[in-house]
Design a binder for these strands. Structure first.
Lengths: 215, 215
DNA sequence: CGTCGCATTGATATCGCTCAAATCCGGTGG
DNA sequence: CCACCGGATTTGAGCGATATCAATGCGACG
């Protein structure tokens, strides 16, 4: 059946040992995957869409902890922790793989190659988190934009295809969307960047040789 | 000899499989452990002291990426990466364990229990990194201070023993030290926090998780 | 169409950065 | 014991970048 075929195709992105236990599920835009305090049963993998991990601050404002995008795992901490520590919402209609924590934990000791693979997955997440810390430590919006482009670019092209809206990017950079709009306009006027649709390119003359990345 | 005994005692903090390969070394305050670009040979474990991972920004300013304190590993990414991607400096006189990367990597596949332990280590680092992201995303200094205390407190006491100077804390929070001094003074005057030497305590009345009509 | 969310721009207020200066405190050498 | 020094702590003043509040246009979608 179509459903079964599709699931198999999607699951093929997972390391082989995980496929057996995982199942695929679609979520609607805005659907909540879990709340803080819910028992942690699954680790998730994003096939398509976008999931956001949020924590509500004391003033009721939402703090964006993490954006999980296609090809990424999230809630890996479920392996260690009995309950989820934040809320997760499908920010767009998303297709996810659910890996039962109860199967993942034993796999680390049972499957030798898998331990290394999973290790790399966590390391990648850690590097990305540290890159974001580095970015948030920069004092001006323009610096954060430059850092973002250099960190996210592929092929040394100094170009990024924005995954979401500029408003999303603004949250990612930890600034108001107005400040981002204005900064981008100013940088564009100064010839430092160019924009085509959702592509953002840093002018070659302004690009440093070193890429920001962690450790 | 005393030296050997001490090394054994210190190494006992490491998972058993790592002890065989690791060695202990003392670093003076200000000593550099490695620079960006150096071949990544070791993963480190902090017995005492404090190590900081820094990256120098384009304006020559130092960006604090990470503070490794006693009981923590750092430069775990060495396992995956051929060279270090930032600088590491012993900020205080420190005693560290050096774990050769060449031994650690095979251990993940060879030793079953160790894979689980190591994954917990990485998971913990990831949680801390995400907590810091959450903190840096807060817009006001006061919010960051509150978040810091709540994140670092032990025993739900709302109290933190500051590891370093307030200037250090300011760097940690991503603000100028002047701004931190002023904010702390204001919060203290408002009765929101109290300070005794290096202890920082959030007033109990302000610590309730759900305050009706907050703000 | 009406509505909703994104993109954009303006006006204004404010918070935090920067430069500066005074004080305190621990360590160090005479 | 004391003078001195460097770094941390504090407070002041002023400026500028960013947040915030508003208004408008625009495109998607039902």
């Amino acid at each position: 059946m179509k459903q079964a075929d599709e699931s198999q195709t999607l699951l093929s992105n997972l390391p082989e040992p995980l496929r057996v236990f995982s199942r695929v599920r679609d979520y609607a835009r805005g659907e909540m995957l879990f709340r803080r305090g819910d028992p942690a049963r699954w680790v998730f993998f994003v096939h398509s869409g976008e999931v956001r991990m949020l924590r509500s601050g004391r003033a009721g404002e939402d703090i964006l902890l993490h954006r999980a995008r296609p090809g990424e795992y999230f809630a890996e901490a479920a392996v260690d922790c009995p309950e989820y520590l934040c809320d997760a919402i499908a920010f767009q209609a998303s297709t996810l793989a659910l890996v039962p924590k109860s199967e993942l934990a034993p796999l680390l000791t049972r499957d030798r190659g898998f331990a290394t693979q999973w290790n790399s997955v966590l390391m990648r997440e850690l590097r990305m988190a540290r890159a974001r810390i580095e970015r948030l430590a920069l004092s001006s919006v323009a610096e954060r934009v430059r850092h973002f482009v250099l960190a996210e670019e592929r092929d040394e092209a100094g170009e990024v295809a924005l995954a979401g809206s500029l408003k999303d990017l603004a949250r990612d950079l930890g600034v108001s969307h107005e400040a981002l709009y204005r900064t981008l306009a100013r940088m564009e006027k100064a010839g430092e960047i160019t924009r085509d649709g959702n592509a953002l390119r840093l002018a070659a003359s302004r690009r440093s040789k070193r890429r920001p990345a962690d450790r």
